[in-house]
Amino acid sequence: MLYGNILTLDGWRLGELSWQNGCITRLDGELCDPDANDHLRILPGFIDLHVHGGGGADTMEGGQALETLARTHARFGTTGLLATTMTAPDAEIRRVLDAIDTYMQAPPADAARVLGVHLEGPYINPGKLGAQPAHARPGMIGEIDELLRLAPIRLMTLAPELSGHLELIRHLTGRGVRVQLGHTLGSYEEGVAALEHGACGFTHLFNAMTGLHHRKPGMVGAALAHADYAELIPDLLHVHPGAIRAALRCIPHLYAVTDSTAAAGMPDGDYRLGEQTVTKCLGGVRLADGTLAGSTLTMDQALRNLVSIGLSLDEASRRLSRYPADFLGLTDRGRLVPGAFADVVVLDTDLNLQAVYVEGRRIEGDHHVTDAR
């Protein structure tokens, strides 16, 4: 049982949160203003739909690396995530998908839940790789159906302007896969057409896509004008706070991701990102030529960053928990309600982590809780 300021679907309540067998059983309390007391802030666990690595481990390694990254991100408040792949040769992608599926059959209890796969590439534009390796190519429906049999691909990033991709978007949507547009040189019109064919989001908004110009609105323009959902990296390095605020005014369910690499939770140095080596220094991760290559962001810092640019704590929380859960169609995560999993983040008044629970199990770390009962 936890006592404190609990963020519920209808606002803050000062009271008790209880769970049993991994699920919330009771939530009691009176509506309150959390700034009027010094009790803990109790939020839904964070859900990160774009995770390449953490704790020195990279998704593309498979096996033990998946456990390492899931444990690492749980220490920073992430209770559910999508293991995110890199553009790679077909055999490499198949190997990793098989490894992720195997891992998901018997996950460790003391780690963030891997909810599925975010396939980022190889179906992207070779002219907008960003930090992706040079294995980009158009996708074929038959080939992708084979990949869908290997692991639960929940989300796919692709460039809509590549040949056959509008038909591919419609097919993937029919198979229950969420499609985001990214790593693209597509025009505004191509972005709108993709949304009309079933695409429903944008990958790391503003980054690795055609920008906004008043006579050539580009993919960013399509997102700002038409998107209901889009992901964004709020490390305050990938996107200027002013651009974040503009996106918040335009996209109702803009949600945060880390796009984290193996360097997340680790000291400065060299790390793996797919087949490439990246360097962590000065708070970022870059290729040898200086290109930003994912991030070192963790979700607890993403929360603090959003609050620092003017979001209320409850709004910032929604963009780290409820909105990504809704995007995947999950009703039992991303919110504190009876019957949902007891995925819980506990913060002090300075928004420092005090405890993390995944399906009711306390994640070990440097956290301490004073309002537990």
Rank of each mutant, 00 (worst) to 15 (best):
M1A: 11
M1G: 03
Y3L: 08
G4K: 10
L9K: 15
G11R: 14
L17Q: 05
W19C: 00
N21I: 00
N21T: 12
T25Q: 14
T25M: 04
R26L: 11
D28A: 07
C32N: 09
D35E: 13
N37Q: 05
D38M: 05
L40C: 12
L40Y: 04
D48K: 02
H50D: 01
G63V: 10
A65L: 07
A70V: 06
G77N: 02
G77L: 01
T79G: 03
T85E: 04
T85M: 05
R94T: 07
R95W: 04
R95A: 13
D98R: 04
A99L: 01
T102H: 06
P107W: 13
A111E: 03
A111D: 04
R113I: 14
V114S: 05
L115N: 08
L115A: 06
H118A: 01
L119Q: 12
Y123S: 01
P138Q: 09
I144A: 09
L147E: 02
I153M: 11
I153K: 09
R154M: 08
L155H: 06
M156Y: 10
T157H: 08
A159S: 15
H165I: 12
L172N: 09
T173P: 02
R175H: 08
G176I: 05
V179S: 06
V179E: 05
V179H: 05
G182E: 05
S187M: 04
T203V: 07
T203N: 05
G211D: 12
G211C: 03
H213N: 13
M219T: 06
L224P: 08
H238D: 15
I244C: 08
A246Q: 09
A247H: 02
A247E: 07
L248A: 05
H253C: 05
Y255P: 01
V257P: 02
A262V: 11
D268A: 13
R272G: 04
R272V: 07
E275I: 10
K280G: 06
V285R: 06
L287F: 14
A293L: 14
A293C: 13
L297D: 08
N305P: 04
V307G: 07
V307S: 09
I309W: 06
S312G: 15
S312Q: 13
A316H: 13
R319S: 10
R322D: 01
P324G: 06
T331C: 05
D332E: 14
G334W: 10
R335V: 09
V337K: 10
P338L: 02
F341P: 00
V344N: 00
T349R: 15
D350W: 00
N352C: 11
Q354E: 12
A355P: 00
A355E: 02
Y357M: 00
V358G: 00
R362D: 00
R362H: 08
R362Q: 05
I363G: 02
E364R: 12
V369I: 10
A372C: 03
R373I: 07
R373P: 01
